[in-house]
């Protein structure tokens, strides 16, 4: 009878309703037999099964099963979220960036191939910009300094001029002196500028026949882009993004890259 009792108790999760019924019956029987034999029931049961009473066993097993199911559920939830994130990264990438041909402020040719192997921060602006461009380039300088500290020199800051009529290479070179020493200033003809702005989804208002001596401002999109070492778009940061936010986001991306490819660039 005792063995029957513990067997029933050890499989509560197999058929709970049957088990309850059996236990009820058995307790009743048990009671009647203990009355007949005049033995203290509690001590006899303890002698047979120790402190591990059927009830405790049931609770133990049920808790174990419950916890197991709960953790499995949580794990599945996390895996699902990870899968979704990976999918959205694969498919949700914006079509920003692409082939272009420009020259650096030192007169060297520069194309999208020169972005490879570096984390690129790309800003579009012009040297006669009253306040926003210098602010953004200062921000970029701080970001690059911080990334240099953390990862070494794996970031490449780039300034692309949207004012081809006035921004000559010497002028850009003079302008860049006040910012990060590695900052590369790119410029091209009007058509080349227009082409690169198109691939980067940047709006700019410089007219084609702008005079090199004109005193005008250029209206343009204020973003700087983070491009990964394969030249793919990662993120666009607006004016409201702080240095800390940009560094954090870029560091996350570098970390993920390192996790996937085993290298930082």
């Amino acid at each position: 009878m005792n063995s029957g009792l513990s067997r029933a108790a050890l499989r509560p999760f197999l058929s709970r309703s049957r088990c309850v019924g059996q236990r009820f019956r058995m307790v009743k029987k048990n009671y009647s037999s203990s009355v007949q034999q005049q033995t203290p029931r509690g001590s006899r049961d303890r002698a047979a099964v120790g402190v591990f009473t059927p009830k405790a066993a049931a609770v133990f097993v049920a808790t174990g099963v419950g916890l197991y199911l709960y953790f499995r559920y949580e794990k599945e939830k996390i895996q699902e979220a990870k899968r979704k994130e990976l999918e959205s990264r694969k498919w949700g990438k914006a079509a920003v960036g692409g082939p272009f041909q420009l020259s650096t402020h030192e007169g060297k040719p520069f194309s999208e191939k020169d972005l490879l192997g570096k984390w690129n921060l790309v800003y579009f602006g012009f040297t006669n910009c009253p306040d926003i461009c210098p602010e953004e380039l200062d921000k970029m300088t701080e970001v690059v300094n911080e990334l240099d500290n953390r990862f070494g020199e794996i970031a490449q800051p780039i300034f692309i001029s949207v004012d081809p009529a006035r921004d000559s290479q010497p002028q850009i070179a003079r302008y860049l002196k006040d910012f990060h020493p590695r900052l590369v200033g790119l410029s091209g003809t009007y058509d080349e500028t227009k082409a690169v702005c198109k691939t980067y989804r940047v709006y700019f208002s410089t007219p084609k026949d702008a005079s090199p001596d004109g005193d005008y401002l250029v209206d343009h999109s204020i973003y700087f882009y983070l491009m990964d070492p394969e030249g793919e778009f990662v993120e666009a940061f607006g004016r409201s993004s702080t240095v800390e936010e940009v560094v954090k986001r870029t560091a996350e991306e570098i970390g993920r890259w390192e996790g996937e490819k085993g290298r930082k660039t």
């Binding site: 006040d178 005008y216 209206d219």
Partner: peptide
């Protein structure tokens, strides 16, 4: 915004606004 102006400048001892100073 007033980004866009068509006034040509006279080049008389103008500040060099490409420098931070």
């Amino acid at each position: 915004m007033g980004w866009f102006d068509w006034i040509s400048s006279k080049k008389t001892e103008e500040p060099d606004l490409t420098t931070r100073k």
